[in-house]
Design a protein around this nucleic acid. Structure first.
Lengths: 250, 250
DNA sequence: CGCACCAAACTTGCATACAAGACTGGTATG
DNA sequence: CATACCAGTCTTGTATGCAAGTTTGGTGCG
């Protein structure tokens, strides 16, 4: 039987793989049917995720994947900078086993880049940072980083990151190389730069318009083909409603 | 009516005030009677705390306040070092309002030192670090630090910290002064030193003896007064059983 | 006396039932 | 036609009941 941690884990993984968009509704009943268990277990999983800042609940309305504000986005990146560069700065020489594990991870990233599974790609790129924290010997910070990574993944989705995966992977390679040759100062600098670039790739227009996202999503297609005007947009399968993503949890 | 977050908050506060010792059993039924609610709410609160690493559950045996291992203790202090020094390092000049708030906090610490409420004292000394993170503008890291602070408080209780409160408060004053005059480098150094001293005050004997704590707690009193040998120790009110602390949650 | 075994009490794990608020769509009214 | 209102439906919030595992204390046997 599934446990509440299983359910929470599946949801986190779906977020890291960008299969669950920010704002997606997570109904207790839907999930309990999906996982074939009672609402109690689902609720427990959602409470866990809420505690970790991944979902929020609106009283008697529903559970939703968080949509971090601009401020929260800034804080999340700042927090990752503090932790990840700090962790590298204070680390001594990295032992062989850790370097080996990191290189294996890089291999997986590169394989994923060759393939066409965007989810796997996103997941591995995020997981690199968790893996790094573990290799540097701090499970507590690694766990914290996992949550922060999920957050930044959501932020990237919400603010339509234009950062490309190949660049990220190259950054990761450079960081591991610096660590492997014991140049922690360079590794720290590279990490700082890497996080900065990921953050810079966000479209954080200083807009006060709460409808900005909706407006952009529903904007008419630019070449304005001969599509009928009325209800076509609502049924266009290339713009699935958020709920549709739920299916991919299976 | 109490909410699950209320219950969780009360438990956290009790830990920060050192009124709940590591290893204390937290029975669902006891708590539900204490807070006059159903086990559902208590369970939800405990699940939240478990997610934050404050309590653990042993299947069908009970919920317990965590007892961090030596390794976990090391990781917790390392994590705090990374976050707190990193946060100071990257902060710009601290604005007036923040300095004012920090100084108010220091005042409260000093007042508590004059009084004799050890719980209040412990609480404020720990809360300083959370307050600092908030003042430096990162609520996300502040929340994370709150959990880490609770952890280190438990570690201090478990490993019988000999650190004295007056010294801690003086350290805090020095850090705020350095921040107020814009000397972040010095503030960072002081913070590093402060955390180091708190950690150094632990009795982390490299023992493999899992009974060490019990052995020490149950050691005969050194002057060996004329106390009767038999059952007196079990009823000595100066050594209350962990469950007794529950009452102080009220 | 020592040891194994067993039953009773206690604890959490999970499902379900019901309560109560929030939203939606329709309808009546101005 | 526009608007206010209201009932029905859907959602979460909370309590409770039962199942199942763990511990403890006692009891009988060797």
């Amino acid at each position: 039987m599934v446990s509440s941690t299983d359910i929470a884990q599946r949801i986190i993984e779906a977020i890291l793989a960008q299969r669950l968009a920010p704002g997606t509704r997570l109904g207790e009943q839907s999930l309990s049917m999906l996982f074939d268990c009672s609402r109690t277990l689902v609720r427990e999983a959602l409470v866990r995720l809420a505690t970790r800042g991944i979902v929020t609940v609106s009283s008697r309305r529903g559970w939703y994947v968080v949509q971090p504000s601009h401020d929260e986005a800034r804080e999340a990146f700042e927090a990752r900078r503090v932790i990840e560069t700090g962790l590298i700065r204070r680390t001594g020489p990295v032992d062989k086993a850790a370097v080996k594990r990191l290189k294996q991870h890089l291999k997986r990233e590169q394989d994923a880049l060759k393939g066409d599974d965007v989810g796997q790609r996103s997941y591995l790129l995020g997981d690199f940072h968790v893996c790094l924290a573990e290799c540097l010997g701090n499970q507590l910070l690694a766990d914290t980083l996992r949550d922060y990574t999920a957050r930044t993944t959501l932020i990237a989705m919400l603010y339509q990151s234009t950062h490309d995966a190949v660049q990220s992977c190259q950054d990761h390679v450079a960081i591991v190389e610096a660590l492997a040759r014991g140049d922690t100062a360079e590794a720290e600098r590279l990490m700082e730069e890497h996080i900065g670039q990921v953050q810079a790739a966000l479209r954080l227009a200083p807009t006060n318009d709460p409808l900005a996202n909706l407006r952009e999503a529903l904007a008419p297609l630019s070449p304005a083909p001969r599509a009928p005007k009325g209800r076509a947009a609502a049924k266009d399968p290339s713009h699935p409603a958020p709920e549709t993503y739920l299916g991919s949890l299976l």
